[in-house]
Amino acid sequence: MDTEPVKSISWPRRYAGIYAALWRNSVVREMGFKSNFLLWIVVELLWFALQLCFIGVIYLHTDHIASWTKWQVVMLVGASQFIQQLFQALFLSNCIQFSELVRTGRLDFMLLLPMNTRFLVSLRVVDLGGFVNGASALVVMGYAARQLHLSPSAGQILGFLLLCLAGILIHYSLMFLLSSVAFWTVRAQGIIWGYYSFFNIARLPDAAFQGFFKAFFTFAIPMLLVANVPAKLLLNKLQSPGSMLLLAGMACACFVLSELFWRFSLRHYTSASA
């Protein structure tokens, strides 16, 4: 592995080069099925609209959910969609396909490549439609901000983006953890499907929940932090920086946990084909 040409480039540049090649591959692949690419964007837009309809219908009958007004919740749903779509663009299909890699034995081939296997497995495919849908979520957020007469400062926007990164890291780590179960049983599809249920929770205002449910989805599976904290930062709803630190801390914890489980599973992995 330590041959001269490899040594001569630093590792960040090497991995950036690899990632650029993966991007090129994905663009070529998507453009091979243009109409399908566009149709998937429409599908995601429809589901986004559906969530907004639900909020709209609830607010036909009430003017607040706990301390949240209508446009504040729209902002939250937008933030949740933004985070989820970026996660989908970068990681989701890779996580879903992982069990296929194990089943077909293609993983063995990847393990032999002179690079970090988790990097390759997690980032192999980029789903470009996710970026388009992420942009549409930003448009909705912008509209909600106008309705609320918000003009966030540059610091708030920067903070929002950083917190979104933490949210994406949580989605990715938990999903990667779930797909690593494929090492132990190939029939792990049901678990992955289940993670979609959690997305539904991320877009609901945290103030609507209490007791065990709230504690569980804050400290065990931090779905009530992922979108709520970034949205509250923009809405001036954060009283203290505590919840921002909590989100960042949970993101690190989830990532470390998924890495530990990944290494543990790899050590116990005996190829599918042998």
Binding site: H61, G190, S197, A208, F209, F213
Partner: peptide, 20 residues
């Protein structure tokens, strides 16, 4: 798993309506 996981968003919706 599918039936079980499906109950989580249902529970969330019920809590949401309770708050309303």
């Amino acid at each position: 798993l599918r039936a079980g996981f499906g109950l989580i968003p249902l529970l969330a919706t019920i809590y949401l309506w309770q708050t309303v």
